[in-house]
Every structure is written in structure tokens, then in C-alpha cells.
Amino acid sequence: MGKTSWALICGVIVNVIALLVISPLSAALLTSDKVVVPQTIVFKRLTPKPGAQILVNATRETYFRTMSALTRKISTSTWLSDTLLTLPFWPASEDAQLGLDLTSSHGSW
């Protein structure tokens, strides 16, 4: 095989050590952070009339969602839980979102 080059062997050792030490350290030092840019946004909300009762109108969709919730253990509404009823609210610049999916051009709110 010929004569062994010690410079090449030392270069390989330094390269392996750098690969094993510097890569994990650089990954640990380079982390991303969330940047929150606060804005004031006007919201609309549904409000019941004073003294009025909230009537439940059970439709086919109501029964379907209830059965889905019981069998798959999922929520039937974003605004309703076992212990809490939240009246819907949304940014004033958008249309009301009363379904299961809440998407907004304003991000998380």
C-alpha cells in the first residue's frame, strides 16, 4: 500500500472530531423563536337579547354530530364543551364562522 501519510490521518481524525462535536453544538445553539406582533383588532360577537332563552333546534346535523361525538370522542362544536358555552366571536373585518373549523387571516387570536 505504500507509505502512510500522517498528515492525511490527522486530517481525517480532526474531521471526524469536528463532525461529532461541532454539528450537535451548532444545532443546539441555533433555535427558532416565535415572534409575536401584537395588533389591536376589533371583534364582533353574538349576544342574546336580555331575558331571552337560548333555544336548541335539533336538526339532522345535530344528531349526526352528537353521534359522532359519542362514538369518536370528538367535540361537536368549537364553542361548546361539557362545562362551558362560549358565544361566538370573530374579527369585525371577516364573516362570522360558526362551524367546526376556525380560519382567520389574522392568525391566532
Rank of each mutant, 00 (worst) to 15 (best):
M1P: 13
G2L: 01
G2Q: 04
K3L: 05
K3P: 06
T4I: 15
S5Y: 10
S5H: 09
L8W: 12
C10P: 00
G11N: 01
I13P: 11
V14F: 14
I17E: 03
I17K: 01
A18D: 12
A18F: 06
L19Q: 11
P24Q: 09
L25V: 11
L25Q: 11
L25P: 04
A27M: 07
A27I: 03
L30R: 13
L30N: 15
S32E: 12
D33V: 10
K34N: 14
V35I: 12
V36N: 02
T40Y: 05
I41V: 12
V42E: 15
K44I: 00
R45G: 04
T47A: 14
P48W: 03
P50Y: 05
A52V: 05
A52S: 15
Q53R: 07
I54E: 10
I54F: 08
L55E: 14
A58G: 02
T62Q: 03
T62H: 10
F64D: 14
R65I: 01
T66E: 13
T66D: 13
T66P: 00
T66C: 05
M67A: 15
M67R: 14
T71L: 09
T71R: 07
K73A: 07
K73F: 11
K73V: 02
S75K: 05
T78Q: 11
W79Q: 02
W79I: 01
W79N: 10
L80P: 08
L80K: 10
L80W: 07
L84P: 03
L84H: 11
L85N: 00
P91K: 00
A96Y: 04
Q97M: 07
G99S: 05
D101R: 08
L102F: 14
H106D: 03
G107V: 00
G107K: 01
S108E: 12
S108Y: 06
